[in-house]
């Protein structure tokens, strides 16, 4: 029996450069932790509903859908190349994250919405994990290329032998440079792991690691 949840659209917020609009659900932005709990509890895929530009005229007063949580994101054309990178452990736990490209150099509007953007990226990355689980058994490759697509955003994935996932959320497709980036990341991850004081699933906080990842991003992305 499909779950129905009605969502009053309290608030619409638009970034200054009009590249992103976020519908708030209830009283605040749904946090990433909430999404995870919901996902786990119901065993359902969290989904994001996209509304195309037709939403401009007359916006629905509420949405009825049979998914548990709705976090509506519209990304419009014109956003410059930017990347969100996250390393996810075997328990779907993030170990390391970084942003490259023009995210940081965005205009004032974007900077103001850092939290939402970040939540969005985290959400996109996290919800692609289900797709990865399906795809990883159909292929023997470690570089799974793009595993999920969300509007103009892709998620690329590299899966290590120990089931650690390197996820890159990006808005321009470039398979080979991303593969080279992931190869460098794998080298850095292995070096981290070979240290007896580092355990699988621990967060990676080394500054040197961070610098090297960013250097790799600069080199290939």
């Amino acid at each position: 029996m499909p779950l129905v949840k009605t969502l009053p659209l309290d608030d619409v917020i638009l970034t200054e450069d009009e590249s992103t609009a976020v519908y708030r659900y209830d009283s605040g932005v749904v946090s990433f932790a909430d999404l995870q709990i919901a996902r786990g509890e119901r065993g359902l895929k969290t989904g994001a509903v996209t509304i195309s530009s037709s939403f401009l005229s007359p916006s629905p007063s509420h949405l009825s859908l049979d998914i548990v949580v709705v976090f509506v994101i519209i990304i419009m054309a014109g956003s410059s190349t930017s990347y969100y990178f996250v390393i996810i452990g075997t328990k779907d736990n993030p170990l390391y994250e970084a942003e490259f490209g023009s995210f940081k150099q965005g205009g004032d509007g974007i900077a103001k919405f850092r939290e939402e953007q970040r939540h969005m990226n985290q959400f996109i990355a996290h919800s692609s994990l289900d797709c990865i689980e399906d795809q990883q058994w159909a292929s023997k490759e470690m570089y799974l290329k793009t595993v999920d697509k969300f509007n103009n955003t892709w998620v690329s994935c590299f899966l290590t032998g120990g089931n650690i996932k390197f996820l890159l959320v990006h808005d321009t497709r470039s398979d080979e440079p991303i593969r080279q980036f992931f190869t460098d990341v794998y080298d850095l991850y292995c070096k981290t792991l070979m240290n007896p004081f580092y355990e699988v699933n621990m967060a990676i906080r080394s500054q040197t690691f961070d610098q090297k990842i960013k250097a790799a991003a600069k080199k290939y992305l």
């Binding site: 608030d11 619409v12 917020i13 638009l14 970034t15 200054e16 009009e18 609009a21 009283s27 605040g28 932005v29 749904v30 946090s31 990433f32 932790a33 401009l56 916006s59 736990n93 993030p94 170990l95 390391y96 994250e97 509007g109 103001k112 919405f113 939290e115 939402e116 970040r118 939540h119 985290q122 967060a203 906080r205």
Partner: peptide
Amino acid sequence: PFRTASVASTATSPTPKYANL
């Protein structure tokens, strides 16, 4: 229907799992 608005202070603070990265 659009208006810009200042970001609400993050009452929902950064997701705990990401806070210590």
